[in-house]
Design a protein around this nucleic acid. Sequence first.
DNA 1: TTGAATGGTAAACATTGTTCAATTATGCTT
DNA 2: AAGCATAATTGAACAATGTTTACCATTCAA
Lengths: 204, 204
Amino acid sequence: MARRNDHTREEIQGMAIDATRTLIATEGLEGVSARKVAQQIGYTVGTLYQNFENIHELILHANAFSLTQLLAALEQAYHQESKPMQRIIRIANTYLDFGQMHEKQWAAIFRHTLPQGFVMPDWYQARIDALFSLIERAVWELAPGRDKKQIQLASRTLWSSVHGICILNIGNKLYSDNIATPQTLMQSLVTHYLNAWVREGSKA
Amino acid sequence: MARRNDHTREEIQGMAIDATRTLIATEGLEGVSARKVAQQIGYTVGTLYQNFENIHELILHANAFSLTQLLAALEQAYHQESKPMQRIIRIANTYLDFGQMHEKQWAAIFRHTLPQGFVMPDWYQARIDALFSLIERAVWELAPGRDKKQIQLASRTLWSSVHGICILNIGNKLYSDNIATPQTLMQSLVTHYLNAWVREGSKA
DNA sequence: TTGAATGGTAAACATTGTTCAATTATGCTT
DNA sequence: AAGCATAATTGAACAATGTTTACCATTCAA
């Protein structure tokens, strides 16, 4: 294996992903370009394209990193001792906080779209699955008696909604801030939805 | 006013917006380019840039058109005779259906982002406001006794959530379709959230 | 009819993603 | 140690993007 600098293939890839993450964090997704990344790591575009199929794969790796950070934050919120309902609220607020604190990275995750014919890699989908699985666990603890399908339905409904609040929160500030904070909306969503959902279950 | 062809400024703008809408509908937001639009309407890019500040303004106009269509569909759903709760469910499903039926246009609306320093024009924001106002009306009918702040809070919470379900529905199909349809999620969200919210109000 | 103003064009510029032939450095073999 | 094969790296090239602008053409008013 011949190499001119003291960087292995893996090192170059790591450096490129780091540079991409920095670019996203400072200039946003639109600020990322192959040449900028290459220049940042001291190589040329050509080298970049030998380590990544295309620019989307690179962005995908950077986003996967953010997803891992997010997941870690959610796991931490999960593992604090408290009642099931409070736990879910805490996780939801962590989700919200992450979006607010890392706005550019967050936007990059859900705003980036694969071009036609590009399939989402398994290692990326796995992170998303892990996220949903965490929610399902938390919801299950709230109502251990419900069957799996119901848990799944409620989890996905709830988390799509939580996600919706996060989205409308960043960028387009749809709420005049003096009226209601996104935390208030989040609280309203989770308590109302889950209270009714739990009650429905105890009826049957 | 000198003109080479028989098109007024307004006509050219209308043609350009139409062409942009077609491009979005067929190729998606990424398929839109100034040259494609110009060629479609039989003019050059230069002419396009005399009628629009930049490509984003053009896209904004196309998206505003979609928003108007969406609003019309929601208004129609609103004006059908039924109980308040059923009305809201119907509106939410109309929202969902619109996203499914006009996937590309829908994605173009919420995926398009203004570049730095670009402020959203009033005529665009007005359409979004109209949308939220419609929901507020529908929620008010469900609980006419609640004060305005509470109505606003519930409306925004609910609609952010509805929006979240729509988003996760298109593109990234996060639900294995054999488990639950998005309509099921929508039904679950609206009924549970609003039932608990109404009950909370009658307690006070 | 002539001149001024407007409509429209085409070419140019910078920047994007992506490819690829040429070059250079490395490791292995003899 | 020399040479060779292989891999790494470059830099130029291509097409397509948004955007600007100098120039040409047409029309209306005088």
